[in-house]
Design a protein around this nucleic acid. Structure first.
Lengths: 220, 220, 220, 220
DNA sequence: GATGAATGAGCATTCATTCAT
DNA sequence: AATGAATGAATGCTCATTCAT
């Protein structure tokens, strides 16, 4: 019984992720979802207490394993080389996102909309994510100064991790392959590590000594 | 008359950008927009031939100056140092996006939704963007090989340029400032240049000779 | 088995009466009822062949004992003082309605709605009620004329008998007690009898000889 | 313009009253109403902010003139014979209810349902009604005791005034005429006055001296 | 006999759009 | 040019009912 219902719930979530991703949350009707899941639309309200509940279920199905993954790597720092842990965390995140590339695109896009998402839920998830990134970074650089300030590293890292999934069309055009393909993930992982090693490099002197001055442009 | 109408059109676009950004395109009603612009909602259909037309007007108001900017820097490569041009282009893009941070967030988010946007328009804009980025990159590295493949550079650059605007909440939390503030833009510009210089470095030998092997993780 | 089922049926009816009374028939869902009766909602369709059947069961549970009561008093007229019988009938009706004050409120309200009730059932019940009232009245006044025409007596009596239950909030406010309380029923019974005795008084001459003329008001 | 809209609003209210009365509030769909008013159903939300708003408009359209009528007669007590005022008030109420017999049936029925009506609105209207009835009664009996306690007079009066409209089918059967017909209203008015004069009769001794004892019936 | 899953019809409501003025 | 009234399609949701277990 609960097994039967579980299958229905799962098929609804899968249909929802696909449609939410391609058409947006607001652009998807529960009839669309029900049609794709080959169920009656009333079941969505029945199982998830409404469209909003379904959205939250989708978000949870992304954030729970995502943060659990980050937490796990964070704990290993205590007895393993922090840099190895950090690299492995990045790799696992890429693989996880690749395995759930639709959901990933949907989540990182939809949280940029103020409404329609219970901000409290999202805020707490993002706070945890930031915390884990910061801890991993700190563990690597220790007492030293890195080439980039920690806050900048975190922001850029976050951008790098989500970019392929938010710009999948772009990547298809440039690479002729979908961002979920293992080969792309592998290459992309390598390029992030390259950047990260450079960014985390311990500094001895003034960090921007030999950079040419920025061209002057006036802000409006 | 056309002056009066021009003012009305402009105030509609401004209201639309604000609301589209915070509530999403589908989540915004034309009555919301009309209310904020202090106009009757029938005017929107009147001026823009419907909500869809308003959306396209917003996109055009972003992409036209954005691509014009890129094109201009691209032309200068003929008689100026390509690297200077590239850096200046990056700087101008950041400043432009900062000046129109709401619109920027809206555009880079909304184009990840398949529906509701005339794909032809978007595709051609993005194709041009890619072309300019590729030309600038090629102009810098010339015949040589860079540390990163050109396609990877372009993807990461694109991610870096949009990340602060797509994750403005995140940046507020980490930096205690909004991504539109000049100080942030300045620092962020510097960090992109650092990364770009590293990425464009001309290679003599195998690029990944001394990187530790990636930890093995099986993809599902 | 039928004992078990009987208990279930009874608990459903009790829950239904309570909810139908406070929320109306249409305003009550069978899940509400099932929830209150601590049963699965499918049982209601099972036991009563649908919500409509449950409604009819409720109506029957009111009208059967109500009319049986009236019939009984009507029969006694053959060998007892008709006036005593009439008074006793009124008393019993008040007590019966007091004992089932929720059901009473529900029934007298719901039959004023044309739809949703099998009119035939209701009509035949009300016809019987009218018949008994008329017989009782006739038995008391015999060949004579009463102060009020019989038809008027019946209508006002009907109004008086149902008023306290249809206006229970009103009575709570005025009396500080619920219309189901014995003290109120007692006083109310007395006032009806006072009115009835006056109304049934045998007339010798023109019945309205000394009433002041009604103030003239034009009907729209 | 506002004239046009006024006509639409009025036709909606008229259709609503008719349908609410015969089918109940919950049993009436806004499409029913819109269909009868020959308008699109969206107009109802447009004009009345939803079905609930339409309900409230109907209630207000009953209670405002009803209470205004009562208030007016109440004021006249200062310089006219209170009994005349009371009788005239009763007459006007009957005429008003007769002129709006559907609305009357609907209102006096629907307020017996707890839900779906903003209780605060109703409560304040009923409180005023009670107050006016009490004032009129007190003005007539002055310092003396009436045959019936004031609270009992008010409750019975209320019942008498609403009974014909709540039991219109009943009256049709008994009288062969509809309760809205002037002849019925006239006769009914007379019978109320008869009862009222008896009830308000000033008492000299114990009021129930010669009434036969009530037959004993045990309450369950 | 009793239950939870599943359904389809129907609900109030929203919304972009049209149109007469 | 500009507006308020009016519309119809579509949406999320509710609910009585059915059915397999």
């Amino acid at each position: 019984m609960s097994g039967q219902a579980g299958i229905a719930k799962q098929s609804i979530i899968e249909a929802a992720i696909e449609l939410f991703t391609t058409k947006g949350f607001k652009g998807t009707t529960i009839r669309d979802i029900a049609g794709r899941a080959r169920l009656n639309s009333a079941n969505i309200s029945y199982y998830f207490q409404g469209k909003q509940g379904l959205l939250e279920a989708c978000l949870v199905s992304f954030f729970e394993p995502y943060l659990s993954l980050l937490e796990k790597e964070n704990k290993k720092v205590a007895w393993e080389d922090p840099e190895i842990c950090f690299h492995r965390a990045i790799r696992k995140i890429l693989v996880f996102q690749s395995d759930h590339h639709l959901l990933t695109r949907f989540v990182w896009r939809e949280i940029t909309i103020d409404s329609q998402i219970s901000r409290e839920i999202i805020s707490s998830y993002l706070m945890k994510e930031r915390y884990y990134f910061k801890e991993l970074t700190s563990a690597v650089i220790g007492e030293h100064h890195s080439a980039l300030p920690v806050s900048m590293i975190i922001i850029q890292l976050k951008g790098m991790l989500s970019t392929p999934f938010l710009n999948s069309h772009y990547i298809s055009e440039v690479w002729g392959m979908h961002p979920k393909e293992p080969y792309f993930i592998e290459k992309y992982y390598e390029s992030i590590i390259d950047w990260l090693q450079e960014a985390l490099k311990v500094q001895k002197s003034d960090m921007h000594a030999d950079r040419p001055p920025a061209p002057a442009i006036k802000t409006v």
